[in-house]
Simulated assay, not measured.
Amino acid sequence: MFKKNYLIYAAIAIACGAAGVWASLKTARPAAPAAAGAATQGAAAAGPVAALYQQKLKDGKGVEQALAQWQGKPLLVNFWATWCAPCVEEMPELSALQGEQAGKAWQIIGIGIDSPANIAEFAEKHKIAYPVYVGGMSGTDLSRQLGNAHGGLPFTVLIGADGQVKKTYLGRLKFDQLRADLASM
């Protein structure tokens, strides 16, 4: 039994590692094609972002929180999982970035694609300077609505105060690029 579980976890880890390598080779892409009109981009982004703000998710301590509390504020939403090595690797940098930005207008949140128990245990072990929520497997659907066509992790979405998706990032974040993107907002 233990050996069978070990093989399953090893296969998942290898798949996630391969996805992380593949994704790190990709550059961040805009949320919608540049050729599309502003009205089209607004309509496309309003639906998924509105769906995000309608969510009520439990935090790492099991307390249900409304994501609408972040509406009207620039937001960096990071979809991650405890079993995803690139996700876990970028979390200290995301925490440092949130600390650097203390008092600024935007916020980082994490949505874990994992079980409540795993996320609670992870949040207890690690010092994460931004709110972490339990998305469970429905978090994958939410990430797809926000532009994650392949369902890969980590997946990060930059949302403006206007509720528009400004940029999406698949794979481990390149923090120099992210800082430049945040500075341009």
Results as ranks from 00 to 15, higher is better:
Phe2Gln: 06
Phe2Arg: 04
Ala10Thr: 11
Ala18Asn: 06
Val21Cys: 04
Leu25Lys: 05
Ala28Val: 07
Ala34Leu: 11
Ala36Arg: 15
Gly37Asp: 10
Ala44Trp: 15
Pro48Lys: 11
Gln54Lys: 07
Asp59Cys: 00
Val63Gln: 00
Val63Leu: 00
Ala66Arg: 11
Phe79Asn: 04
Trp83Met: 09
Cys84Arg: 01
Cys84Ser: 03
Pro86Phe: 03
Met91Val: 15
Pro92Arg: 03
Ser95Gly: 08
Leu97Trp: 09
Gln98Val: 10
Gly99Trp: 13
Gln101Glu: 14
Trp106Lys: 05
Gln107Tyr: 12
Ile109Ser: 04
Asp114Gly: 08
Ser115Ile: 09
Ser115Gln: 01
Pro116Arg: 01
Ala120Val: 05
Glu121Arg: 11
Glu121Asn: 06
Glu121Trp: 01
Glu121Gly: 06
Lys125Val: 09
Lys125Ser: 15
Lys127Ser: 13
Ile128Pro: 03
Val132Leu: 02
Tyr133Cys: 03
Thr140Pro: 09
Gly147Ser: 13
Gly152Asp: 08
Leu153Gly: 13
Leu153Trp: 08
Phe155Gly: 03
Ile159Pro: 09
Ile159Cys: 07
Ile159Asp: 08
Asp162Pro: 10
Asp162Asn: 07
Gln164Arg: 04
Leu170His: 11
Leu170Tyr: 09
Gly171Ser: 02
Asp176Lys: 02
Asp176Tyr: 05
Leu178Trp: 10
Arg179Pro: 14
Leu182Gln: 11
Ser184Ala: 10
